[in-house]
Design a protein around this nucleic acid. Sequence first.
DNA 1: ATTCTTACA
DNA 2: TGTAAGGA
Length: 295
Amino acid sequence: MTGLTVRTIRFYSDQGIIPPSARTHSGYRTYDVEALAKLKLVRTLRELGVDLPTAQRVLTREVTVTEVARVHADAIDAQMRTLRLRRAVLRAVAKGGEMELMNELARMTDEERQRILDDFFEDVFGPYELDPGFESHMRSVRIELPDDPSTEQLEAWVELAKLVQDNDFRASIKRMSARHEQMRADGENMGAPSQGQMDAFTNSVQEARAALDAGIAPDSPQAREIVDRVNAKWAEAFGVPNDEHLREKLFLHQDFADPRAERYWVLIAKINGWPPVPDTSAERAWLRAAGQPLA
DNA sequence: ATTCTTACA
DNA sequence: TGTAAGGA
């Protein structure tokens, strides 16, 4: 009738939550329509996960069903967030991640995550005189791991946290900063790359992609031709002749080509749910092997 | 056959 | 919630 077991009805009765409207001569509980309605109300609330004490406060009119519904829905939101997070951690652990590390990094707030990045920025950019536009652009990167990160996003955050705390990576970026500082002191424009330089980069990646697809070895004569073509574009972008001048220019820039720096951007995009950054590490590795240092 | 109370795990 | 007991 009410969907409740005899047992629980008795329990409600004993607890005084819903007293029977009357008893028969032999002590049987009887419930009139009003009490019956109360039983159904409590059953529904219990089914929706509302605890008995608050169900009782609904009966006594201390709170309305509307209020209880809102509060409880909010509570479920919170539970779902932690459950989603737990699931993401466990899925990542199931795929072989380290549990303590996963859990610790997943539980962090956005602010705590940002601290890790800011520490990194301070270490690798702070001591150097860099192009202000460049530095503020690098420092403006924010980490916003969603409440319900996918396994991939969580893994990306773990990898990023490891990366920016890795002393070898930091040393590499510091070398870039030192070189950047030096070039700036020498009057080089170290702000945003020109359109020509970006085009030259795009061209490099396309050429290398085609070479990789065609199975051209980096040490083959064909690779030599490709590097010559790529260098011609770079020479144009830098505004220098495609000769020793360009070689010098490329040499000055080559310290910027740590593949992990690109990985950094790939990970940031994944964590923040940005459109995926194309991973050109394979193309760049081919170009480096072929003797073209900058790409 | 079902419900009742009390009590313990 | 399951179980027991003895009554109604």
